[in-house]
């Protein structure tokens, strides 16, 4: 299941939009089809004894939604103060959310435009990406929804639990 190559991990032959946000000084992109909404941060209820990557639970209009720490998940060291927006994503019918520092724009990605993930990126980060885009503002790192959100739906529960 795990691909060893550095080739962009996309099966999409069509252009798709990514929602671009900033986190710990990086520009990250996530497929807009996975982004449900972006909100001001919601009050997070901490869950004692939960794995470290879990911030806790938020009440999204009566729905109890998991808030996880994307920064920790990707092993990023914070370079700027932030966590000012809550991104709610949808993966296989389950909502899950994380905080980002800032939201930029939605960018269209043409098929074939994705470059392989540079192999010298930190491992955790590298494994969460499906490719990078070399754009004017610098590198745009495109997250692989299945890898970033998949474990939430129990696809690789182990990595979440051991994180």
């Amino acid at each position: 299941m795990v691909e060893k190559t550095n080739k962009p991990r996309t099966t999409d032959d069509q252009a798709f939009g990514v929602c671009v946000f900033r986190l710990a000084g990086l520009r990250l992109g996530l497929d807009v089809r996975n982004v449900q909404e972006v909100l001001k941060p919601l009050a997070i209820t901490r869950v004692p004894l939960a794995p470290e990557t879990m911030d806790g639970l938020v009440n999204l209009r009566g729905q109890i939604v998991l808030a996880f720490n994307l920064r920790q998940r990707l092993d990023l060291v914070s370079r700027e103060p932030g966590n000012s927006l809550q991104v709610v994503c949808l993966h296989q019918g389950e909502s899950v959310s994380f905080l980002v520092d800032a939201l930029e724009e939605v960018q269209e990605i043409q098929p074939g435009a994705l470059r392989p993930v540079p192999s010298n990126l930190p491992r955790r980060l590298r494994e969460a990406l499906m490719g990078v885009l070399d754009v004017d503002g610098g590198l745009l790192l495109i997250l692989d929804p299945a890898r970033v959100l998949g474990w939430v739906a129990g696809e690789s529960d182990k990595s979440a639990a051991n994180a």
Binding site: T45, V47, L49, A50, P51, M54, L57, V58, N59, G62, I64, V65, L66, F68, E94, V96, W151, V152, A153, G154, D157, A160, A161
Partner: peptide, 22 residues
């Protein structure tokens, strides 16, 4: 509970209280 929290054995679920708190 959301799946990644279900293995924490001391919890059986979550609920919303009257004031919207979890």
């Amino acid at each position: 509970l959301p799946l990644p929290l279900r293995h924490v054995a001391i919890y059986g679920g979550a609920t919303l209280l009257g004031d919207g708190r979890i």
